[in-house]
Design a protein around this nucleic acid. Structure first.
Lengths: 120, 120
DNA sequence: TCGAACCTTGACACTAATGTGAAGGTCAAG
DNA sequence: CTTGACCTTCACATTAGTGTCAAGGTTCGA
């Protein structure tokens, strides 16, 4: 599919799709005329990237994580450098921390709403 | 305490502490000479704000959540407008979504690392 | 063959969150 | 009384993530 279709299917502006490609987060091939051509899997990829960006993960970090995301469903055993393994473990720890923080604040909102008397 | 102490105790630059105050996320009183004076509770507040900002929550949204965060530990029953209650419920839903996304990606990293053969 | 609806790259601009530095006031200790 | 370590405000710079527009190529149907 071309960029316009990917855009309508994901709800992500074409401008951003090009930006993500520039940042190495999504890839495309080119048609003879230079138009970008996307595989179906790009839809899932874009959604995943969006989720992470909205969660405040910078594009450079997402790039680190891409091998993990790409292989979520396949069972190929990757061979990776120790450096990368360490980076990934660190990223995971950061995610854990972030999840904890968000959960704590969500719980605070929940408790607040439970205690609150609504008026107006 | 003054801004310098709050900065060293939280690890947050004074520049940012002033910025957060400008955004209504932390408050201070002023000494006779104009210096900012912070209560001890400001430390926890700053840490909480930092956590949320790092998780990608914009300052305007954090501002909405402040009443919840401030009253986490006290038992006073707040009285709020329906609008605010709706906004907060929405914020909580967004947090839930974000948490889900992050958890999913953390799990992807975990699974990747478990499958991986480390070399180098 | 013309126009609409795509696509391309490039550039300029905005916001949020920061860093950094200037120019100056306050205060305590030597 | 001066020096150094604080503090103040103001302002300009930067980065990431976007929006938007300009100038132009492609494709397809009327």
């Amino acid at each position: 599919m071309r960029i316009g279709e990917l855009s309508t299917r994901t709800g992500v502006a074409t401008r951003l799709l090009r930006y993500y490609e520039e940042q190495g987060l999504v890839s495309s091939t080119r048609e003879h005329n230079g138009y970008r051509e996307y595989a179906d899997s790009a839809i899932e990829r874009v959604n995943q990237v969006r989720g992470l960006i909205e969660a405040g993960i910078p594009t450079a970090v997402i790039r680190d994580m891409l091998p993990c995301l790409a292989s979520t469903s396949n069972a190929i055993a990757p061979v990776i450098q120790r450096d990368l393994a360490e980076t990934l473990a660190e990223r995971r720890a950061q995610l854990d921390q972030r999840i904890g923080c968000l959960a704590k604040n969500r719980d605070a909102i929940t408790s607040y709403l439970e205690r609150a008397t609504v008026t107006g």
